[in-house]
Write a protein that binds this DNA or RNA. Structure first.
Length: 591
DNA sequence: CGTCATGTAAACATAT
DNA sequence: CATATGTTTACATGAC
C-alpha cells in the first residue's frame, strides 16, 4: 500500500527533471529520496523499496541534500552579506549607536558559524566519501561550495561598516526587507514541501549528474566513492589501483547487504543531523535579524533548507510558513531535538517538553569509541542540541579521563557535560540526577575523598569488565545497531563505530591499524592516554594517589578481590584495548 | 518471557 | 534552613 503510494508519487514527480540522465536500471522515486525519515522509517523504507532501489534512493538523497545544502549556504551567505551592508546603513543613521559594534560582532560570529558549519558538513561528507576530495590535499572542502563570503570580504565589510559608523546621521528609513528580498529574489525560495518533487531544475540536473556519476558504469573516470586510490566508502580505506579494481571492490565489499544499507542509513542520519543544526543556526540568525529590525518577521525564505521536516526547523516556524497538510507542531522552543526516535513521529515527539526515556546505548555496545567520536564531532555536539549517543556512564568516564588527573568533582563533571554538549544545557535536573545516579551505581566510578571534598575517578578495569562482548561487525549486528538507534543519534555512534575499523579521521592522528575491513577489536578510546603513573605530575588537584579514603562499592558476587581496582588499570593484559584512537590531546575545551 | 543495561524519577541521607 | 552531593529504590524501555 505504502509502496504503491510512493511509487505513484515517484513516477509523477521524478519524470519532469530527469530528462538529462539515463536512468540506471533502477528507477528511483525521487520523492522517496526526498522523504524525510520522519515520514518513512528506515525499516519501512527497506520494506517498501527493493534493495537496489533503496541504494539508489540513498544516493539520491545524499546528492539532493548536498545540493540543497550548498544552495542554502549560498543564500544564507548572500543574505548575511546584505545584512552586513544594511547594517552599515543603519550605522550611518544611528550615528553613535554604541550597540552597533556588538551587532556587527554578532553578525560576524553568526557568519563565521555558518561557514564553520558549512565546513563541518563538507568534512563529514568527505569523510564518508560522499564528496570527492580535492586533488590538492590541503584545500578546504569549502571549495566545493559556491563562492562564499571570504574572511577578507568580511573584514572589508566590517571595515567599511566601522568607517561609515562615524559619519552622518540619516533618517532611519531604509527598508531592509525590500532591499533584501528584491535585490535577491533568488533567496526567496519557498521551502520544498514534503511531497513535492525537486525544488528546482538546477537541483534536478545536479541530482541527475550525481546519480549518474555514482554509477561507475556510466562515468568510469571518476566515482564519488573513489579517490586517491582508495575506496572512500565510510569506514573503508581499501586501496584500489584503478577504477576497475575499485569497482570490483565495491561490488564485493560493499554489495547490497544489511551492512551497506545500514551504512547508508547512517549516512542519511549524518546529513540530517547537520541539517538540523543548520536549521537552528539559521533560525537563530533570523531571530537576530528580526530583533535588529532588519527583517520584520517575514517568513524566512530559507526556513527549510532541505526536504526534511525536522523538529528543529519546524518548531519555530511561523504558522504561515508551515507546509500544507502538515499539522503544526506545538511550538516548543525548548524541546530538545532529541534525535528522532520512533522514526515517524518527530513532530509529535517534539511536543513533549521532556523526552521520555531514550535508548541509545548502541555505541556502548559497540565499544564506545566515544573519544574518537567526540574528537570528530565535539564541535557538532557543542552547538547542536543533539543528544549524544553515549551512555551517561561513558560520558562521565570520558569527562574524567579528559582531565590530566583523571579525576573530577561532581560539579566539574556537570560542567564538562554542559561544555561539551549543547544538549545538556537544558533539563539540568534530569541529567544531573542521572549523572549522580550513574556515579553511585556503577562500580567503575570510584569516589575519592580529598581534603576539600571528593573527586570521582574511573576504575578502568571495572569499566571494561562491565562491557559486553565485542562486536564483530557482522551485518546483522550492524543492522541491529542501526535500527536500535531509533534512527536518531546514529550519526555519531555509527561514525564512531566505524572509526574503530579504521575510519579515516580527518582531524585526528592517523590510525595505526587501518585495516580497511571489518571491525577489529573493539576498543574504547581513551584509556590509553593515561595511565596515572605517567608523567604529567603537575596536577593542580591533589594527585596524591587516591589513597585518602575510597569508597568501594559493593560487589554482589565478587569473584576476585579486585586488587587492581585502584591501581591504574593499564595492565589489564586480558583486555585488548585499542587505546590508540584517542587523540591524546584532551580535546581542547571551550571558553 | 526473563534478564540485563540503561534512563528517569524520586525518596532519603549527609555534608556544606 | 537551603543546597549540593551521594545512595538507593522503583519503574519503564529496549536489547538479547
Amino acid at each position: 500500500m505504502a509502496r504503491q503510494l510512493l511509487l505513484q508519487q515517484a513516477t509523477g514527480l521524478s519524470s519532469p527533471n530527469n530528462t538529462e540522465n539515463k536512468q540506471p536500471s533502477v528507477q528511483v522515486p525521487v520523492s522517496v529520496a526526498m522523504m524525510s525519515p520522519q515520514m518513512i522509517t528506515p525499516q519501512q523504507m527497506q520494506q517498501i523499496l527493493s534493495p537496489a532501489q533503496l541504494q539508489a534512493v540513498l544516493q539520491q538523497q545524499q546528492a539532493i541534500m548536498l545540493q540543497q545544502l550548498q544552495e542554502y549556504y549560498k543564500k544564507q551567505q548572500e543574505q548575511l552579506h546584505l545584512q552586513l551592508l544594511s547594517q552599515q546603513h543603519i550605522g550611518k543613521q544611528q550615528s553613535k549607536e554604541s550597540s552597533l559594534g556588538n551587532k556587527q560582532l554578532a553578525f560576524q560570529q553568526q557568519l563565521i558559524q555558518m561557514q564553520q558549519l558549512q565546513q563541518q558538513h563538507l568534512l563529514n561528507l568527505q569523510r564518508q566519501g560522499l564528496v570527492g576530495l580535492q586533488s590538492g590535499q590541503g584545500t578546504l572542502p569549502i571549495q566545493n561550495l559556491p563562492p562564499a563570503v571570504s574572511p577578507s570580504d568580511l573584514q572589508q565589510l566590517l571595515k567599511e561598516m566601522s568607517n561609515s559608523q562615524e559619519d552622518s546621521n540619516k533618517p532611519d528609513t531604509v527598508d531592509l526587507t525590500t532591499s533584501i528580498t528584491t535585490s535577491f529574489p533568488s533567496a526567496k525560495v519557498s521551502p520544498p514541501s514534503m511531497l513535492s518533487s525537486l525544488p528546482n531544475g538546477q537541483n534536478a540536473m545536479q541530482i541527475s549528474r550525481r546519480e549518474s556519476s555514482s554509477h561507475y558504469d556510466i562515468c568510469p573516470s571518476s566515482h564519488p566513492l573513489y579517490g586517491h586510490g582508495e575506496c572512500r566508502w565510510p569506514g573503508c580505506e581499501a586501496l584500489c589501483e584503478d577504477m576497475g579494481q575499485f569497482v570490483k571492490h565495491l561490488n564485493t565489499e560493499h554489495a547490497l547487504d544489511d551492512r551497506s544499507t545500514a551504512q547508508c542509513r547512517v549516512q542519511m542520519q549524518v546529513v540530517q543531523q547537520l541539517e538540523i543544526q543548520l536549521a537552528k543556526e539559521s533560525e537563530r540568525l533570523q531571530a537576530m535579524m528580526t530583533h535588529l529590525h532588519m527583517r520584520p518577521s517575514e517568513p524566512k525564505p530559507f526556513s527549510q533548507p532541505l526536504n526534511l521536516v525536522s523538529s528543529a526547523s519546524i518548531t519555530k516556524m511561523s504558522p504561515d510558513t508551515f507546509p500544507d497538510g502538515l499539522p503544526q507542531p506545538p511550538t516548543s522552543a525548548t524541546a530538545p531535538i532529541t534525535p528522532l526516535r520512533q522514526g515517524a513521529s518527530v513532530i509529535s515527539s517534539s511536543s513533549l517538553p521532556s523526552p521520555g526515556p531514550v535508548r541509545r546505548r548502541i555505541v556502548d555496545k559497540f565499544c564506545t569509541p566515544i573519544s574518537s567520536e567526540l574528537a570528530q564531532n565535539h564541535e557538532f555536539y557543542k552547538n547542536a542540541e543533539v543528544r549524544p549517543p553515549f551512555t551517561y556512564a561513558s560520558l562521565i568516564r570520558q569527562a574524567i579521563l579528559d582531565t590530566p588527573d583523571r579525576q573530577l568533582t561532581l560539579n566539574e563533571i556537570y560542567n564538562w557535560f554542559t561544555r561539551m554538549f549543547a544538549y545538556f544545557r537544558r533539563n539540568t535536573a534530569t541529567w544531573k540526577n542521572a549523572v549522580r545516579h550513574n556515579l553511585s551505581l556503577h562500580k567503575c566510578f570510584v569516589r575519592v575523598e580529598n581534603v576539600k571534598g571528593a573527586v570521582w575517578t574511573v576504575d578502568e578495569l571495572e569499566y571494561q569488565k562491565r562491557r559486553p562482548p565485542k562486536m564483530t561487525g557482522s551485518p546483522t549486528l550492524v543492522k541491529n545497531m542501526i535500527s536500535g538507534l531509533g534512527y536518531g543519534a546514529l550519526n555519531a555512534s555509527y561514525q564512531a563505530a566505524l572509526a574503530e575499523s579504521s575510519f579515516p579521521l580527518l582531524n585526528s592522528p592517523p590510525l595505526l591499524h587501518s585495516s580497511g575491513s571489518g571491525i577489529q577489536g573493539c576498543h574504547d578510546d581513551v584509556t590509553s592516554t593515561g595511565e596515572p603513573g605517567n608523567s604529567n605530575g603537575s596536577s593542580p588537584r591533589l594527585s596524591p594517589q587516591y589513597s585518602q579514603s575510597i569508597h568501594v562499592k559493593e560487589e554482589p558476587a565478587e569473584e576476585d578481590t579486585r586488587p587492581a581496582s585502584l591501581t591504574p588499570t593499564n595492565e589489564n593484559t586480558n583486555l585488548p584495548e585499542d587505546r590508540d584512537l584517542e587523540p591524546e590531546t584532551p580535546m581542547e575545551d571551550l571558553p
